[in-house]
Amino acid sequence: MKIEFILNDKKRVIQVDPASRLLDILRDDFELTSVKEGCGEGECGACVVLMDGKAVNSCLIPAGLIEGRHIVTMEGFRKTERYKVIEESFLKAGSVQCGFCTPGIVMSTESLLRENPLPSEEEIKEALSGNLCRCTGYNMIFEGIKLAAERGKGLW
């Protein structure tokens, strides 16, 4: 199946099996390895990317579904000013340990702040509930997101 979509601001046309997972297309065909596979069943969130600005599990998306969509991975997002704010805030708050869940968490953070630039702690917890982290116990990630929301006022 021929699919046309926008990937990190570039128009792409690919010929793929429509059942191929977006996750594999991103990792294998485009070498976008920030997108991780942690479970392959939509439970862990390590593969979260943005589709039309919203966080989605790329392991659950068949290729046929991305026609005409805007897909953003960390490789695209890390060039933005909003990313810089999230990065600084995560560094400051100690939000990162092993890092395998982190790109997915940054994507979910971006998705949250776009919709809700000043989220409450409860809203942060809810927004991250699809991103498992086994190292931090989450509290220092919440701190990082709160800090990003404060520091990045006006950016979202």
Partner: peptide, 23 residues
Amino acid sequence: GGTDLMIQKARGFGLKPDFNKPL
């Protein structure tokens, strides 16, 4: 959306889900 089907038909890391009919 595919969220249920993609899990039901999943075969493992890096593998295509196992659909036997046109999508």
